[in-house]
Nucleic acid binder design. Structure first.
Lengths: 199, 199, 199, 199
DNA sequence: AATGAATGAGAATTCATTCAT
DNA sequence: TATGAATGAATTCTCATTCAT
């Protein structure tokens, strides 16, 4: 192993630590309250180092959001390429989202916080990707003729993507008295979602 | 009109201006980005004046959120006291929410931004009020026996309250290519919501 | 009783309350930390009222200091007019100072704090009064021929006036492990003081 | 001289400048009146820089006070370790205090102002150190059997430490018409002090 | 590649003071 | 006589960002 490849590994770790710290702090303190200094300290790197990878704080956060959303979009696209039915696509998506929330609640909290923030829009290119993916899902449903008359692309987005994310965060916040979830909850959310879109 | 009443009107106006400025800035820049100085400047009052009414920035924002949510809860409670059916209660609620969004988009944006922020919880008392109201709506639906098997209190909250708010903000953000809404949209959202909860 | 005299009584009380509040806060928080608003609130008067009597915060504090010092000077002058010996004059003074400290510790703390503050000098006229009084005491001692060779006017001031005040505050601050004082302490301080000046 | 050592010198200078500015302003305006902004400006550093070294204004001032007092305590302790007589210990102390006042009046003014401020106590550990030192001086005097019957530890503190400091400040303030001091004054103060404690 | 010293604009908040009533 | 609403300058402190090393 040469020094160069060794360095790369080191780098990767550092940046990974920065991103973890960023997510944690964004969730805990919000965009305004999360300071770059604290991110660097938590990640064990210098502030200067951090600025060599990201133009500024906003870009760091935005790039993280983009990557998180991209992962979700990739997952849906994979699911779509396997000629799944609408039900399968939605079920896979929701199970995937719950898996993310179980692996690390902060990841889902982070997405939740940012997609509802007027300071962070999806990047333009990604917005197109989202539209495309939602359209593909919508067309599958149309082809299968299973949508009720009130269902449009917006409802696919709101119900199949946003509603499960909101569900998890409602539980994180313990608003209605339950703190986590079990497989029954996941099934119920999945079924509710599909039933909401169906005739 | 005597001087006294003139003074009062002036006062009322000032605080009203502060609150308007606060809402606008919260929506535009988020909690961390919205500065008290700018709020005061926009409202045409001094910073010191503002602090005679609110202990600090957080209290100003929190009190505004509480008031906005209270208005919505009051509306639902009124609706419940009139022995309305589930469908009527939900329909009234959604129409009310759209009315708010039409009167002043910032009001709905403000609520949207804050209820998805991990730094702003509902005040404890209000959280209880929300639970109570949602429970009452839920019980009406149970009595009428019209819920599908996947519907719980959480779904009432997410679908009848959050989904319409999200819908408006999706339109404000122009995510799927339409910027406002018309009466058809309102009807569609209403029907979709009721259909989602129903058998 | 006419309205005028009634008013005067009321006024007197109010101003007295203001002065009490001022002293308490000056001792507790220092000049910078004591706010006029809090003084007014504690005294149960409005800020505006307070400013009708004192040009500003400094004048309020300065006038209080001047009055406190004047009381002490008056006491010494009375003592001097009775053809007392040096020992009697000093003994009366020290007993008087301890009486002040017993009546209300804040009074002695207040004097202690201010006479050691570079922002508060004695008023010019009062500085002359102090010099005069100290000179008279000095001359009595000279006439009686009891001073040791190292004793000058400055020592009269430092030992007969400042040292007892410092003693009480050392006890208030509990620096050497005793919190108050008894009659033995008073006698000891008196004797120490006289002995320090004597041959 | 290499760049590194050059940097260190620069750094040291900056902090030194901050401390000088702090002392000057504390003496001129008191704790409340001395602003951190002005300290930074006078020291030629940025506000942010200052806060990298001191948690806040209080810590800056307190740390300076502690250091000044420590220097004095160290001096007494050195003197004590050389098996000096009481007279020598006190004489050395007083000469040292006057030397401090001659080197830089602000240093003695600073100590004078803060030890008489109810907002600044000695740090707990230092208070113990002071007690210990005073006790050691007291025990020397006891062993030599030279104290008069009115002399206790408190008097050692008040007369050997506080009285010379007060003397210098009385001169700085020009209260009795002389502004500085000469060697005769120093001798007189020393002799007065020793004579005051002696039989 | 990596650091962290240094900045300075700007944040939240306070408070002495004024003045219309 | 007495109030307290209103101000705005000043205060303490933070933080994103830069840059010399």
């Amino acid at each position: 192993m040469n020094t160069w490849s060794f360095m790369r590994v080191t780098d990767g770790n550092k940046i990974e630590q920065v991103e973890k710290a960023c997510i944690t702090l964004m969730v805990q303190k919000g965009y305004g309250g999360a300071s770059v200094s604290e991110m660097a300290k938590r990640a064990g790197v210098s502030k200067g180092y951090l600025y060599r990878f990201y133009k500024n704080k906003e870009e760091l956060v935005q790039s993280l959001l983009t990557r998180h959303i991209d992962l979700i979009l990739d997952h849906i696209n994979n699911s779509l390429q396997q000629n799944n039915s609408l039900k399968e696509v939605i079920s896979f998506l929701i199970h995937y989202l719950f898996k993310l929330g179980e692996e690390n609640p902060d990841n889902i909290k982070f997405v939740y916080v940012l997609i509802h923030d007027y300071n962070f829009q999806f990047e333009l290119k990604q917005q197109e990707d989202i539209k495309k993916v939602i359209q593909r899902v919508y067309h599958i449903g149309l082809k299968q003729g299973i949508f009720n008359e009130y269902c449009r692309e917006e409802e696919i987005f709101s119900i199949a993507l946003i509603y499960p994310i909101d569900f998890m965060n409602l539980r994180f916040k313990n608003t209605f008295g339950s703190a986590g979830w079990d497989t029954n909850d996941i099934e119920r959310v999945t079924n509710f979602c599909i039933s909401a879109l169906r005739k």
